Amino acid sequence: MADQQILLKSLLQQRHWQTYKTFCKEYDKAAKLVDSTLQGKWPSRAQLHRWLSGELKGLPYSDHCRVLEAMFPGRTVEELFSPNSTRNSTPRSDTHLPKNAAPSVEAAPAPQLADVTAVFGSRSAFASTYPPTVLFDTAKEISAAGLSLNVLCQSYPDHRLKSLLENGTRIRCLFLDPKGTAIRAREDEEGYKDNTLVTLTALNINILTRLRDQLPREAADLLELRVYDETIRFNILIVDGATCVVQPYLPQARGVDSPTIVINDNTAADGLFPVFDRVFTSLWERSLPV
């Protein structure tokens, strides 16, 4: 079944419930109707991926089955985990081509973009389409890992950050350690000779530390600052567990010149969101608090 889309995956896509956050919300609605004690007991992201990829052997636990049948009235759980017979999965045939002939460009399959929704040639091009106010003003959770995190510290006003925190937004910031060796290596790679990246990163950490000191205790606890000292590969920004912005660090190029990828969590697709979510989590767990 792993090579054929199951009905549950098709139905989630049809209803636009494929992001993990949306799935959990709809799961809770159905759970309330079935048994209120099942609310909040949705599958983990990894479990849901196994369900939708067709890798699950048998059926989920009975409580999950009850909720799934409530989410899709008229469908049995056996149907939900069976291949979608209405989906056109007939492979393209190239039997008419001469022996050793390559398929024409017109006959090539469409590119598979999974959960990638936009790609920009540079950070400035990305910022003109996704300004910080659009990204952050209504956010309930922001996780950022990179070098100096200018998008939060330099491009987004302090009073807006303060307002977010006072209204319950959780913000996690993971900086490249300004006292570490990895940031020195990156400065050498970019051709800096005057501690530019060290100074900027230390300044940005100080900006957020000062802001945290001005907040009430409950709001201050929502702003978590950490540092790590490892070769920098990506700048990762995750907003509300649904939108991920990824910027690779290129050799001998400033970060602002990096291409930028926008990813929207689509649990019903084999996408990149869980990949970079794991990268952030792994870095966070190895980091040190500020």
Results as ranks from 00 to 15, higher is better:
Val245Tyr: 02
Asn264Pro: 03
Glu166Ser: 14
Ala114Ser: 09
Gly168Phe: 12
Gln5Pro: 07
Asn167Leu: 03
Ser128Cys: 07
Glu78Ile: 14
Val105Thr: 09
Asp158Gln: 15
Leu200Met: 13
Glu69His: 02
Ser128Ile: 04
Ser155His: 14
Phe234Cys: 04
Leu174Ser: 04
Leu147Gln: 13
Ala125Ile: 01
Arg92His: 06
Ser128Met: 09
Val290Gln: 07
Leu283Ile: 05
Asp177Val: 08
Arg210His: 06
Trp42Cys: 11
Gly191Met: 06
Val275Lys: 08
Leu197Phe: 05
Leu59Ser: 10
Cys244Val: 03
Leu11Gln: 03
His96Ala: 08
Glu224Trp: 05
Thr129His: 13
Ser44Asn: 00
Ser282Lys: 15
Val245Pro: 01
Val262Phe: 03
His159Asn: 10
Asp194Phe: 04
Leu12Pro: 02
Phe126Trp: 10
Thr19Val: 02
Tyr156Thr: 04
Cys244Thr: 06
Glu106Gln: 11
Thr281Ser: 15
Ser148Ile: 00
Leu80Gly: 04
Ala202Asn: 14
Pro109Ala: 09
Leu161Ile: 03
Leu225Val: 04
Leu59Pro: 07
Pro274Thr: 04
Pro178Asp: 05
Tyr156Trp: 06
Lys29Asp: 03
Gly191Pro: 05
Pro157Val: 00
Val227Thr: 15
Thr209Phe: 05
Arg45Gln: 13
Ile261Leu: 15
Gln18Leu: 09
Lys162Cys: 10
Gly271Ile: 01
Asp137Ile: 04
Ser85Asp: 07
Ser287His: 11
Ala125Tyr: 02
Thr133Trp: 05
Trp284Met: 08
Thr260Glu: 05
Asp270Glu: 14
Cys153Gly: 12
Thr117Gly: 14
Leu7Tyr: 00
Val77Gly: 02
Gly241Glu: 13
Ile171Cys: 09
Ala110Asn: 12
Leu59Phe: 11
Ser10Phe: 05
Arg45Met: 11
Ala118Thr: 00
Gly74Pro: 09
Ala101Trp: 05
Ile236His: 04
Leu80Gln: 01
Leu164Ala: 09
Asp257Ile: 00
Val119Phe: 14
Val239Lys: 03
Cys173Lys: 00
Arg160Gln: 14
Ser282Cys: 10
Pro83Leu: 09
Val262Glu: 04
Pro248Val: 11
Asp115Glu: 07
Pro132Arg: 07
Asp240Ala: 11
Ala219Pro: 04
Val34Gln: 00
Thr37Trp: 01
Val245Asn: 01
Glu106Tyr: 09
Asn84Ser: 08
Gln39Asn: 08
Gln18Ser: 14
Asn206Val: 08
Leu237Met: 12
Tyr249Trp: 11
Thr243Arg: 08
Arg212Asp: 07
Ser282Met: 11
Arg170Gly: 10
Thr169Ala: 15
His96Ser: 09
Val77Asp: 01
Pro248Ile: 10
Arg87Glu: 13
Glu69Val: 07
